[in-house]
Design a protein around this nucleic acid. Structure first.
Length: 864
RNA sequence: GGGGACGUGGUGAAAUGGUAAACACUGACGACUUAAAAUCGUCCGGCUUCGGCCUUGCGGGUUCAAGUCCCGCCGUCCCCA
């Protein structure tokens, strides 16, 4: 049986509608950004994706958030820049080449094309004319120039360095890419190797990067805190210990110079030059050092490993008391990169030192004593727990009686006075090693010459292009075994020389792409200076919390380095930052314990989940971040195909605040879909007065509803200003629920007039969130303009103030009644009305109130 | 081990120190339908003698008033180790 036409027309044709409006926006160039404008600029940016080939739910959330901001700011009269591009270098392209024989360039470009189409189906308001792909020479040539300029400015150096080597990926990993001693992607146990590496001097800006965090008021507090911890500023001293029987002393770094008299040993890193020297004549020590090198270099790996040491037999002389000597150990918990690679151990007041001293029988001396619980603290140390709290110095000669902070100052004063060392600020932050032994990255523009050393590629010869004819069937870096590419003449002496075959860390590209968007076709310095000055900084940056430290810190550094080299005029690239939460989903396993996709799971006959095909029982695990490995993923393409982009966008925005994790549920997407249809039906089927019909005399109900419409306009604006999208959705739903209760009023009634005003407001308010539906509603309401080009609605201030308010009446803080009072009623009237309430009289039981607190327009609290 | 965030119905969540649970999801019941879907309507924190009483992880405190502020626990998550 065929359905009547009215029922068919009852459904929103999402596919046709969304495609149609996308074409209208594109044809009209609604989202093209221009520099010349008398409106205030607003640069909104989402973290650009790696072109894996398909978008995932995290992208959908990220780009929906950005698009709401972009469309909202446009409607609010800003000149908006909202670009998109591709973080196109990286390992997956090479892995694809190795596994499937497809060239990384081809693989990447095809993925970009596929993902671009998927993003376009979301109806995002990007200026696609500004699209960039970092793997293209017209992009990466500029960062080669930047690198050479940084080199000239002294911000780049090359050094032999111990690195984390991932034996599976055949590459160097940054410390932060090593998690629990394993490569972040491969999961392979990381080894240490010594390699020549290029470094960017991020530490030159350490203090400024730290201090300027205070100015980033629109960043989440926790991201600032994480960066602060990462930079890790500590104040202390460097001082020289003499070593018995040797001419050269040993320089150590300490943050606790006050505890010098508690020193029981000196420990040096396995990579310390002294250790290497001693190991030459000591096979057992050499073996110990080799063992240390098998550990990762990360601090976490070192901390979790058992504390081990090797007594060198050498003795250090105590700098304040030459009659005392301290054994020098090589220890696996001392880092060569931190401070000087040597420490003194004060077991009583440092847990690591105490563990070490107890293990090797080195003893301890307590030198800090708290004001209270003296015996307890002494006993605690004896039992193996160091005391790190405040107190007064004991057993410490000239420091005795001083508090810890005063003692630190006094100790450093004496160290400086005696020429033993100096006050030092130390940072945990280390310079950024940018060399990667990889093909699919930006070539480092350097030529190695036997006579001239590392020589910059002359600027006229930039870009150094990646050769396309490379082989991936040999392990290691394809650039290194390319037959001819690396053979060049030295630019200085002309003799045969060799190109640098390492490429940049891919964080290099993402450290300046935001500037490239301001003028993506500029052929000069990577961007047009005037355009960058106009658009920068990014007003609102949106992305995942996982980039809280690395990408964001590198970008902050890079921008400073660019400024120092005269490229642009800002220090901070991102004035505002919003970090979105993860998308989570339930996990499913079959009886054998194998992960199942949500699409593999169906409801069984008894309502329990079963495998959709085999009917086997399925166990449902807790909701976790969507990941391919656990198969708890939902493909956005299928959702957009079935429900449309607006439904997916609405689901992303409603229910949870943007920075919180979001649970993807079928029920949730169905609920969003129902609301999309409901809104559409309301606009498409309403019988309304003409657009320009004058407002009739409004009855009480219609006037009340009209006030709600205007209040909603005001509050949704506030919600969006604060990125409280879930509340904006709730407030719009409240309004449309009230409009729906009108049913189908007569076309010439006051209710129908308010309904038109309300539906027009609804279309405009949902514009940033559900742009296709908004246009469709707007058009169904008889408008021939575009929501995308329509200003944000204005609430009539006169309608925002109520003439009467509901005031709560409490007795001893418990609610007893509510009363209606004129707005701003006098306290005396409020008090009198409250005391007249029967429930209040009953609660007082005849006794006079002791006190009455009146908060105007809010509450009356009667204290009995 | 250090630092931080969070803890509210069956679920996601609201609540400038001032009426806790807005807005949804799930569920139940009803209307329409031959039936189902869709849609619409009603109910949905707990207890209740139907007057009310209790309820924001636990225990204290500040306040006329605490989910919100302070202190101490417990738990979860994140970062650093």
């Amino acid at each position: 049986m065929s359905r009547p036409d009215s029922l068919i027309a009852d459904r929103y044709n999402v596919k046709d509608t969304e495609a149609r409006w996308q074409k209208v926006w594109e044809d009209r160039g609604c989202f093209i950004a221009r520099e010349e404008s008398d409106r205030p600029k607003y640069y909104v940016l989402e973290m650009f994706p790696y072109p894996s080939g398909r978008i995932h739910m995290g992208h959908v959330r990220n780009y929906t958030l950005g698009d709401v901001v972009a469309r909202y700011k446009r409607a609010r009269g800003h000149n908006v820049l909202h670009p998109m591009g591709w973080d196109a270098f990286g390992l997956p392209a090479e892995n694809a080449a190795i596994q499937h024989g497809v060239h990384p360039a081809k693989w990447t470009r095809e993925n970009i094309a596929a993902m671009r189409e998927q993003l376009k189906s979301m109806g995002l308001s990007y200026d696609w004319a500004r699209e960039v792909a970092t793997c293209e020479p017209d992009y990466y040539r500029h960062e080669q120039k930047m690198f050479l300029d940084f080199l000239k400015a002294g911000l780049v150096y090359r050094k032999e360095s111990w690195v984390n080597w991932d034996p599976v990926e055949n590459t160097v990993l940054a410390n932060e890419q090593v998690i629990d001693g394993r490569g972040w992607r491969s999961g392979a146990l990381v080894e240490k190797r010594l390699l020549s590496q290029w470094f960017l001097k991020i530490t030159a800006f350490a203090q400024d990067l730290l201090d300027s965090l205070k100015t980033l008021e629109r960043w989440p507090e926790r991201v600032r805190l994480m960066q602060e911890n990462w930079i890790g500023r500590s104040e202390g001293a460097r001082l020289l210990f003499q070593v018995e029987g040797r001419a050269t002393g040993l320089e150590i770094f300490t943050t606790r110079p006050d505890t010098l008299y508690g020193a029981r040993f000196v420990a040096i890193a396995a990579n310390h030059p002294l250790a290497a020297e001693l190991a030459a004549g000591n096979p057992a020590l050499a073996e110990f050092i080799a063992e240390c090198n098998r550990m990762g270099t990360s601090e976490a790996a070192i901390e979790t490993a058992e504390k081990k040491g090797f007594d060198t037999g050498l003795k250090a002389v105590h700098p304040f008391d030459p009659s005392r000597t301290l054994p020098i150990h090589v220890a696996n918990f001392v880092l060569m990169d931190y401070g000087t690679g040597a420490i003194f151990g004060c077991p009583a007041h440092d847990q690591r030192d105490l563990d070490f001293a107890n293990k090797y029988g080195l003893g301890y001396t307590q030198v800090v004593e708290p004001a209270a619980d003296r015996e307890a603290v002494a006993a605690q140390i004896a039992a193996g727990t160091a005391y790190t709290g405040d107190g007064v110095l004991i057993n410490s000669a000239f420091l005795d009686g001083l508090a810890v902070e005063a003692a630190k100052a006094a100790a450093i004063d004496r160290i400086e006075a005696e020429g033993l060392g100096a006050r030092t600020v130390n940072f945990r932050l280390r310079d950024w090693g940018v060399s990667r032994q990889r093909y699919w990255g930006c070539p480092i523009p350097i030529i190695h010459c036997e006579s001239c050393g590392a020589v910059p590629v002359p600027e006229a010869e930039l870009p150094v292009q990646l050769p396309e004819d490379v082989r991936f069937d040999i392990p290691g870096n394809p650039l290194a075994h390319h037959p001819t590419w690396k053979d060049v003449a030295c630019p200085v002496c002309g003799k045969p020389a060799r190109r640098e075959t390492d490429t940049f860390d891919t964080f290099f590209e993402s450290s300046w792409y935001f500037a490239r968007y301001t003028s993506p076709t500029s052929t000069t310095i990577g961007f047009d200076r005037a355009a960058a000055d106009y658009w920068m900084p990014v007003d609102q940056y949106i992305g995942g919390i996982e980039h809280a430290v690395l990408h964001l810190l590198y970008s902050r550094f890079f921008t400073r380095a660019l400024r120092q080299c005269g490229y642009l005029n800002v220090a901070e690239p991102f004035a505002g930052l919003l970090t979105q939460g993860m998308i989570c989903h339930e996990t499913y396993k079959d009886e054998a314990g194998a992960w199942l996709f949500p699409t593999d799971v169906a409801d069984g006959p008894d309502g329990r989940p079963v495998h959709a095909v085999t009917g086997q029982p399925v166990t449902v695990g807790r909701s976790e971040k969507m990941s391919k490995s656990k198969k708890n993923v939902v493909d956005p393409a299928g959702i957009i195909d079935g429900y449309g982009a607006d439904t997916a966008r609405l689901f992303m925005l409603s229910d949870s605040p943007p920075d919180r994790d979001l649970d993807w549920t079928e029920a949730g997407i169905d609920g969003a879909w129902r609301y999309v249809n409901r809104l559409w039906r309301m606009a498409a089927t309403a019988d309304l007065p003409a657009i320009d019909a004058p407002m009739p005399e409004l009855g009480v109900e219609a006037a009340k509803l009209r006030r709600l419409v205007h209040k909603t306009i005001a509050v949704v604006g506030d919600d969006l200003d604060r990125f409280q999208f879930n509340k904006a959705v709730a407030h719009i739903r409240e309004m449309t629920n009230a409009l729906a209760e009108l049913g189908a009023p007569a076309v010439d009634s006051d209710a129908a007039w308010v309904l038109r005003e309300g539906l027009e407001a609804a279309a405009r308010l949902i514009g940033p969130m559900m742009p296709h539906l908004a246009e469709e509603m707007w058009s169904a309401l008889g408008q021939d303009s575009l929501i995308a080009e329509t200003a944000w609605p204005e609430a009539d201030p006169a309608l925002l103030v109520e003439d009467s308010v509901t005031v709560a009446v409490q007795v001893n803080g418990k609610l007893r009644a509510t009363i209606e009072l004129p707005k701003n009623a006098e306290a005396a009237l409020a008090e009198r009305t409250a005391l007249d309430q029967p429930q209040v009289i009953a609660a007082l039981a005849g006794k006079p109130p002791r006190k009455v607190v009146v908060v105007p327009n809010r509450i009356v609290n009667v204290v009995a």
